[in-house]
């Protein structure tokens, strides 16, 4: 099976922990796997039931984010090195597959200085070039946020305040901040902070919630859902009212749904705990 598709574990470039990726050996393409996971969901698949209600997404991944993880590490030594000495990982030996990707040199050009000695290429991480590259990533992400009409306003990110008017006047700064948040899921914290300064993003004021982060996500479980669900039961049994405009259950659901609107990544659960699930 040298010429097929396979799931491999590689170091997540943001956290350094293992994450699942799909590698296409024929086309030499890399995909990341993200999981949609929300409490209280299950699937009916044909004539069977599958608990959890997970939905996995395989989307194309820029391998440069993964290479960057190793380049930054090697860059701390401050010298030019051949790539096969940079991309080395005992914990995730499959990282050598990254070296087989096509047009690697073209990719590396964005984030490294290079030297050629005796027809062998040597690379060194360049923070300046990387920040320029990341700025372009932020800009093309902003364009996609606008085309997809993603609501990026700070209002949406607030779970505490939930007033009636949702008329959002999304400012350019909100877009930059949101896009920065998305890109930050693929780079180490240190670089994310540097990028924030590079983009001249002001420090978030204390009244605003923190930018999307892993920590928020973990505490993001809709804890109220269960209670309200049972509340609805009793109410429904007593009154038998079925067509009221907004039942307790609906309200609970509305609350649950909206509290998750932090960043795209908050739409997915935490890290893949199960190695491979169904779907």
């Amino acid at each position: 099976m040298k010429n097929g598709l396979m799931f491999i574990k590689l170091a997540n470039p943001c956290s350094g922990e293992g994450a699942l990726y799909l590698f296409n050996m024929c086309l030499q393409q890399l995909f990341e796997i993200k999981v949609f996971k929300e409490k209280h969901h299950s699937w009916f698949i044909n004539q069977s039931v599958q608990s959890g209600g997970l939905l996995h997404f395989a989307t194309p991944m820029d391998p440069l984010f993964l290479l960057l993880h190793y380049l930054i590490k090697a860059g701390k030594e401050g010298k030019f090195q051949p790539l096969d000495q940079v991309v080395v990982d005992d914990a995730f030996p499959n990282c050598i597959l990254l070296l087989k990707l096509p047009e690697l040199e073209k990719l590396l050009w964005h984030v490294t200085e290079e030297k050629e000695i005796d027809k062998k290429k040597y690379y060194k991480y360049s923070k300046e070039k990387t920040l320029k590259w990341l700025e372009k990533k932020v800009n093309q992400t902003i364009a996609a946020l606008k085309t997809n009409k993603v609501n990026v306003g700070a209002r949406v990110q607030s779970t505490a305040v939930f007033s009636g008017d949702q008329v959002s006047s999304d400012k350019e700064e909100d877009y930059i901040r949101y896009a920065h948040g998305l890109i930050s899921e693929y780079i180490p914290k240190e670089l994310s902070d540097a990028l924030s300064k590079y983009l001249k993003l002001p420090e978030p004021s204390p009244s605003l919630p923190n930018p999307p982060s892993k920590k928020i996500k973990l505490s993001d479980e809709p804890v109220e859902a269960k209670e309200d669900y049972t509340k609805f039961n009793t109410k429904d049994l007593k009154t038998g009212k079925k067509n009221s405009k907004m039942t307790a259950a609906q309200k609970a659901l509305a609350k649950v749904d909206k509290s998750g609107m932090k960043s795209i990544d908050a739409f997915f659960g935490a890290k893949n705990k199960k190695k491979i699930g169904k779907i």
Partner: peptide
């Protein structure tokens, strides 16, 4: 997500 991921990557 897939359309955003396309832009990011």
């Amino acid at each position: 997500w897939p359309s955003l991921a396309a832009a990011i990557h």
